[in-house]
Design a protein around this nucleic acid. Structure first.
Lengths: 354, 354
DNA sequence: CATCTCAACTGAACCGGTTTAGTAGTACAC
DNA sequence: GTGTACTACTAAACCGGTTCAGTTGAGATG
C-alpha cells in the first residue's frame, strides 16, 4: 500500500483499556466511573477520573455509537436549487442557531444539500438508514408533505418548522407568520392603500400558503378585496414576472406585499425601471429582513424574524425528544416584527401624502 | 425507563450475521462478497449479493467506522459572527458544491459553526479527536493562520481554500482573486478614472490582503498611486465607515473597488445618501456577484466567482487525499469574471462621459 | 500415489466502548 | 453461626462490521 499524507501515523488514541490498566481496574469500572453510574466507590472513581485525565483519554464516539446505537448527530436536509442557495439569508443563521444548541450536548450537525428534486427523500433515507443521525429537522414544509410519511416510516424522531397540514406526529416549532403579514397589511392600510397586492411564494410550501392566506384575511378584515394576487416562487426572476403581471393590470396596486425580500428587491427594481417611484407610486414590503435590504434604494420595509432562535429552539426540542423529556406539544416563537423603512409611504392621492 | 417518541421501536436492522445465516455462509464471506474482495467464488458471491438485497441489508456505518477507524465524513468549520452569517452568499453555494462531491462517495458533511473567536479551534479539535471526520476543509484562511499548525498537530488531512502564507503541508484549491481585482481596476482605468480607492476586507484574511495587493499592483501597472485605501471588515457597517472616510478626503476618489458585495452595496447606499450620483460622481465595484446586486439601484458591477465549483473541487481533492490518490499539488480554478453593470461609468469630466 | 498449491471458505479476534451476570467481601439481623 | 442484603467490583458478552489465521477439498505435479 502506498504511503500518503492521510497515513501519517496519528498517535494511537488512548482507549478505555489503557485507562483501566493504568488504574488497576476493569474496563467496566472505568465505564461506570466516567458515566457517573453507581458501582464504584468514591475513592476508586476519583482515581479513575484522575488517571483518565492524565492519560488524556477521550471516549471514542464511534465505539460509543456502536454499542449504544446512537449517532450523536442531528440531520438537516436543505432542498434548494443550488443557484438559489446563496440568496436566502435564512439558512446560515438558522444553522448557527442549531449549532448553539448542539454544542452544549456534544451533538453535531450533519448537513445534506439536495439539489435534484427526488434527491431530498433519498437524502433523508440515507442519513437515517446509515445511522448517521438520531433525528432530523424538517424545514420548508410543503402542502401534504410526503416527507412526513417517510420519516414516520423510518421511525426517526423529527421536528418540523411550523405545523404541517398533513397529519404529523412530530412536534413543531412555529412562528406566527400570519401576524407578520397582517402587520404589514395594516401598516399599508393605515397609509391609505386600498389596492394592496401580494406576490406569493411557492404555494406548495405551507409558509407560502399561510402568507397568502394572512394577506387575504387582513384585507378582508379591512373590508378590502383580495383579488390582486400573483403567484411566484421566492426567486428574483419569479418576483419580477409577478410584479410585471400586477403592474400591467388596469387596476394596478398601489402597494405590494411580497412573500420574501428577494422578490421584493427584484420587484422594486423592476417597478423603478418602469419609471414608477417607490414609494410615491408603489409601496413595497418584503419578508426576512435580509441584511442588504436596508441598503436598497429606497431601503425596504420588511418583516424581521429570528432564524437563529428558530434553529436553536428546533434543535433543543429535538434533543429533548431524544432524551425523552419533551412534553410533546408545539412550541410558539415570537411573531415577526415589522421594520418600517422608506419603501412604504402614503397611497397616491391619500391625504397623508405629501 | 419512560416511553417516548424516540423509542417507537425501529425495526431492528438486518445485520451481516442475518445475511450470513440466510445465505448459509460465514460473516467473513459476506463481508468479502460485498466489498468485492477475493475469497469467494462467483456463484457464492452472487448468492450472497442476492440474499443481502432481498433482506434489504444496509451495512452499518457505525460498525464499519469502528473497525476501519474511519468516520466517512468531512468537516467544515465556519467561523462567522452569527449576525453576518446570512449576508455571505458564498457558503451556501460552497457547501452545495461539497455535497455534490461527497454524495458520490457515501461521505457526509459535518458542519460546525464557531461564533465565538476561540471556539473555532475547539471545534476542529473536537471534530478530529472525537473521530467525527476523516478530513477537514479550511476556509477564510488567515495571515499566519494558527489552524494550520493545529491541524498538523492533530494529524488530520485537510485542504485549504487558497494557499496560506504560513507554511502549509496541505494541498490548496485556489482562485486567482488578484486577476479579478485587476480586471475591475483595468475596467475603471479604461473609463478614465485616476483616483481609484479600495475598501478592503479584513486584512487578517489572506483574501483580504491579496485583494488589496492586487488593487495596488493594478494601479501601479497603470502608473497610478495606491494611496486611497480604507480598511474595513467585509461588513456593511464597516463598508459605510470606510466609504465615509474616503469621501471626506479632499482628493476624494471617483471610483471605489470594494472587497465584497455587501460593503459595496452599503457604500453605494451611503454615497447616494450624501447626494452623490452613482456612477456619475462615483463608480463602484463589488466582489462575489451576490444575487441581489443585479437588483440594486443602480445594479452593481462586480466579480463573479463559482463557489459551488470551489466546494466540489475542494471536497474532491480531500477525498483523493484520503484515498491516497492525490498528487500533492495545488489546484487552480478559473479566475473571477468581471460582470459590468450600471454602477460603473466614465470618470467625471472624462471625454467618454455624457 | 504422495505431495504441493491454491481457491474458497470458516472461526475467531478485533475495533472501543456499554452492559449484564456473577463473585467476593462486609455488615447486619436473628 | 448462618442467612440475607448490599456494595464494589470483574469477566465476558455484545454492538456489527473487517480481517487474520487456519482448514478443507480439488486439481496439478513429480
Amino acid at each position: 500500500m502506498q504511503l500518503n499524507p492521510s497515513e501519517r501515523e496519528r498517535p494511537m488514541a488512548v482507549t478505555i483499556s489503557d485507562v483501566a490498566h493504568a488504574a488497576g481496574v476493569s474496563k467496566g469500572a472505568v465505564s461506570y466511573a466516567l458515566n457517573g453510574q453507581p458501582g464504584v466507590s468514591q475513592d476508586t472513581r476519583d482515581r479513575i477520573l484522575k488517571v483518565a485525565k492524565d492519560l488524556g483519554w477521550k471516549p471514542s464516539l464511534r465505539a460509543k455509537g456502536l454499542s449504544s446505537a446512537k449517532a450523536y448527530a442531528l440531520g438537516l436536509v436543505v432542498a434548494r436549487d443550488p443557484s438559489l442557495l446563496g440568496t436566502d439569508p435564512f439558512f446560515p443563521a438558522f444553522i448557527a442557531g442549531i449549532e448553539t444548541a448542539l454544542a452544549e450536548h456534544d451533538y453535531t450537525l450533519v448537513l445534506s444539500v439536495a439539489t435534484a428534486p427526488g434527491a431530498e427523500e433519498r437524502c433523508y433515507r440515507k442519513l437515517v438508514e446509515n445511522g448517521r443521525v438520531d433525528g432530523v429537522i424538517l424545514t420548508d414544509v410543503r402542502h401534504n408533505d410526503s416527507r412526513i410519511g417517510l420519516l414516520n416510516e423510518l421511525k426517526v424522531p423529527a421536528v418540523t418548522l411550523n405545523r404541517p397540514d398533513a397529519n404529523s406526529p412530530f412536534p413543531a416549532v412555529s412562528v406566527d407568520e400570519s401576524a407578520g403579514i397582517v402587520a404589514a397589511v395594516e401598516h399599508l392600510v393605515a397609509l391609505g392603500h386600498t389596492r394592496i397586492a401580494h406576490v406569493g411564494g411557492g404555494q406548495e410550501y405551507i409558509h407560502g400558503r399561510s402568507r397568502r392566506k394572512a394577506w387575504a384575511d387582513a384585507l378582508a378584515a379591512a373590508g378590502l378585496a383580495s383579488d390582486l394576487f400573483a403567484a411566484a416562487d421566492f426567486t428574483a426572476a419569479g418576483g419580477v414576472a409577478a410584479t410585471a403581471e400586477l403592474l400591467r393590470r388596469t387596476d394596478r396596486p398601489t402597494a405590494i406585499v411580497y412573500a420574501n425580500d428577494l422578490m421584493a428587491t427584484a420587484g422594486q427594481s423592476y417597478a423603478q425601471s418602469l419609471g414608477l417611484s417607490v414609494p410615491g407610486d408603489l409601496s413595497i414590503t418584503g419578508y426576512d429582513n435580509a441584511e442588504f435590504t436596508q441598503y436598497l434604494n429606497p431601503p425596504l420595509t420588511t418583516l424581521a424574524t429570528d432564524p437563529m432562535l428558530w434553529g436553536r429552539v428546533a434543535a433543543q426540542v429535538l434533543l429533548n425528544q431524544l432524551a425523552g423529556t419533551h412534553g410533546g406539544g408545539d412550541t410558539a416563537l415570537p411573531a415577526p416584527r415589522l421594520v418600517v423603512r422608506a419603501s412604504t409611504g402614503p397611497a397616491p392621492g391619500h391625504p397623508t401624502a405629501a
